[in-house]
Amino acid sequence: MSGFFKSKFFYIVAVLTLIAVIVPTVLCSMGLTPVLRSAVNTVLMPVQKLSDKAAGAIEGFTSYFTAFDRLKEENVRLKKEIASLREEVAGAREIKEKYDWMSDFLELKMLHHDYKLVPAVISGRGSANYSNVFMLDAGKLSGIQRGMPVVSGDGILGYIAEVGPTWSKAVSVMEASSSVGAYVERSGAIGVVEAEYDLSLEGILKMSYLDEDADIKVGDRILTSGYGSVYPRSLVIGYVETVKTDDLTRSITATVRPASTLDQVSKVMVVTKYEVYAEEP
């Protein structure tokens, strides 16, 4: 065995090995590429490139199996992240809702300086499908009394019909028994907005008692006139959808789509105090 280490072959191999270690290392550290190394790379590069493409395809196939554990972990992590983001979104939605409501509140307050508003949350709705009654979480202790109007930022909703210490019951304008004194904002034509059973099923109000020559068009905004004991003047009731003239009596009736409906709001305001204006529309 020792004869091998004394042979010419061994010496040559040993020298070549040292050259193979030292020369490329030194040249690479100097930023140069050894010719032989460059030749090996040049010759084998096309094969390597081709093989790498094939390897890419194989990797794509095998990654389904090899990456299973990683994907499983990632899935668990992403699920947690989604749950956390959902919570954040719910929080943000709540904040936005609150902001919208506060904004409406502020707008209403800016338009009507004389109003004293008490915020309330709709805590329940009528137990029967024909009922247009809703419950509020504020009552006498908040200064709410029977007959006070309930409004949202968009318009009127109804009036307080029953009050308890910490709760109150309100009747919607869609209730067949209620009627509101109203006028057309554009022309000042006066009438009465009331609910009719047939129309209320479609969520529409009827405006009647308009003069023969009343100027009313589709799209006109209808406001409260302030006549009567419930609603203050200039609150939005809704928008005219159709106008009809009776051939016999020549009286005009219009249908009005309410600006605010119960299914759109969850927070409302009760107008506990307002100035009564003497001027007429």
Binding site: V13, T17, V21, T25, C28, L36
Partner: peptide
């Protein structure tokens, strides 16, 4: 003898293709 020659060539080729800068593999392979 074949082992030595193949060790030397293999180490050189894999170092070249692998793109390493410190080439020590011939000292192991040979």
């Amino acid at each position: 003898k074949w082992g030595a020659v193949v060790g030397l060539i293999s180490a050189f080729v894999i170092d070249a293709l692998g793109g390493v800068t410190v080439m020590l593999l011939p000292l192991l392979y040979v």
